[in-house]
Design a protein around this nucleic acid. Structure first.
Lengths: 336, 336
DNA sequence: CTGTTAGCGCATTCAG
DNA sequence: CTGAATGCGCTAACAG
């Protein structure tokens, strides 16, 4: 590899191989058949010797296509996103595409992400659940004709596909169960974005509705579902109240699991003294004592999402908008 | 926004505004002062009307620079990576750069990631700890003159900067403490990559060394540190052994925390019956009962890493290789 | 202050 | 089967 200062180009490879750049391109893109075996070998040898690597910008510009897709998530450190990334990567591998992830953990970064996407850094994108993208931003993306799959219950397909969950019904079932088993004071441990975000929260709505329908006390919504430490502190604070709850519905399994620990640490029995329900159906809910009662999908599987995206990305013309619903249910185990 | 089929270009904006493409470029890149106020306004209006968004491929090709950096992680779902992404994003914002993340969770994907990076999809990259990149792959990256910061104790700077930790010494201290407090049968709960990977594990080496120095029994290394469920099952299995350990050193805090739970569930007292030590110094270690004794950095802070990267990325010429060490210590709390 | 123009590196038509 | 020529969309000299 003759180390030159600049990165070598097809032109240099062509020169070294004694052929034209066209031939180099054919060889490098597997369009052989057009090229003689001997020539092909010479080109490959030359490319190798120069340490040639094609420029993705130049290629993308010419092809009007990046052969990359983007996964937009709200943070890393969330178990479900991990599986999502995995499933998307698997689909991308098949299509010969790359995957890049963008983390949007603030409105400012949401703007940056939308900019990047509109500048066509990828040929399509999946927006994970609870990413704080405003409607206007979504429209900006479809406006730039970017193949898009949005995982959200808060939007309807409109130039993009939507993947929703039947979480509302499942949550209702959970709350009805709590009420039916005699819980009178149910606390809701919320994600930060449920309290500050613009998007409505079906979980929380189900909670408020259930309180109403069952004639249960004033609402008791506290933040803390985003991380374990926050959840622990939130539960501690809940227990210090004079009107201590007899049930805790946490907006995430991570928080619910932590709640079980906090309750045990406080000397309370789960579910006898306080029932606990989570959301997400994490594997981890099976190793708690008692096992976690939760609301979620039967399994973490995002192949559908990946398929939706690549259908769009690889389609010749804009396909019809689609909407699929992953079915969630109330999964009763030991904690409620 | 007159929706045309193709995305509008500077040429079209120029035509609509009645100016040249150069002027459009000047305005769009904030090189005003060269451009009259009235003209500037016309250009902006035209761009807005057409819904113009610049093409990142074309710009990158021309600039020979993508204004993006890449974070390479081994999986998402790891707390430390979250902070790393955050700190890197903050630095990127300042420099006007974007951040993309690539998840490398298999050797095959490591190859793909290296390809992407060599094709210059970003102007620089940070490789997070325990990403399975072989030496040859690292060399391939520096060969293509990519600014690189590698977080690893297993490599020396060589065309890239290295961020290492003083974890070996801290682990030694932890094991010495366990031995000094009378633990005779210490189990090591390992990450999968410590068992199958090519790279040596300082933690495990410290363990083996300590057994040796203190004349302690045969080694007892089991996998399970990668996720909580695995850790729980591993500890259960450990406790079922005839030679049940009296101490567990887990390669991650998440596993250590889970170990504490598993031990409690088994009716054992921590640390009386079994001591537990983790690695990482997660916040979460403070809310366990007892609080987790661990080995790790004083705080999760990766500003240094980000600074190293951007120093390289923004430098005019290749700077000297640097190496910084983040100081880890043995943090004794209640579990050992 | 603004326009003309020459590439950045690549893929691809069209001749030969 | 191979080569010359064109342009993807953009920026930055250089002219005016």
């Amino acid at each position: 590899m003759t180390a030159s200062h600049r990165r070598p180009t097809t032109r240099e490879v062509a020169a070294l191989a004694g052929v034209s750049v066209a031939t180099v391109s054919y060889v490098l893109n597997g369009k052989d058949g057009r090229v003689g075996e001997e020539t092909r070998r010479r080109v490959l040898a030359a490319a190798d010797e120069l340490g040639y690597v094609r420029s993705s910008s130049a290629r993308s510009l010419r092809l009007r296509r990046t052969e990359r897709v983007c996964l937009v998530v709200g943070s890393i450190g969330v178990p479900a996103y991990d599986q999502l990334a995995r499933d998307l990567s698997a689909a991308a591998d098949e299509a010969g595409y790359g995957v890049m992830t963008i983390v949007v953990d603030s409105p400012a970064r949401a703007d940056k992400a939308v900019d990047l996407l509109r500048q066509h850094v990828a040929d399509g994108a999946v927006v994970a659940p609870s990413v704080p993208l405003a409607d206007a931003q979504l429209r900006a993306l479809t406006g730039s004709r970017l193949p898009l799959v949005v995982m959200s219950n808060a939007v309807a397909p409109d130039g993009f596909d939507v993947v929703r969950t039947s979480e509302a019904a499942a949550c209702v079932e959970a709350f009805d169960h709590l009420a039916a088993t005699g819980r009178r004071r149910i606390a809701y441990l919320a994600h930060e974005h449920e309290l500050t975000g613009r998007q409505p929260s079906e979980r929380r709505d189900a909670y408020l509705d259930a309180l109403d329908r069952h004639g249960l006390g004033p609402e008791l919504v506290v933040p803390g579902a985003d991380d374990r430490v926050g959840a622990y502190r939130a539960v501690e604070a809940l227990l210090a109240r004079p009107d201590r709850p007899d049930a805790i519905f946490a907006a995430s399994d991570r928080a619910a699991i932590t709640a079980i620990l906090a309750l045990r640490d406080a000397g309370l029995a789960v579910p006898e003294d306080v029932a606990v329900v989570g959301v997400g159906n994490l594997e981890e809910g099976r190793i708690t004592r008692p096992p976690l009662t939760t609301v979620g999908p039967p399994a973490m599987d995002f192949h559908d999402v990946a398929r939706l995206l690549f259908d769009r990305v690889l389609a010749d013309e804009t396909p019809f908008d689609r909407e699929i619903t992953t079915s969630w249910s109330f999964i009763r185990r030991g904690s409620a």
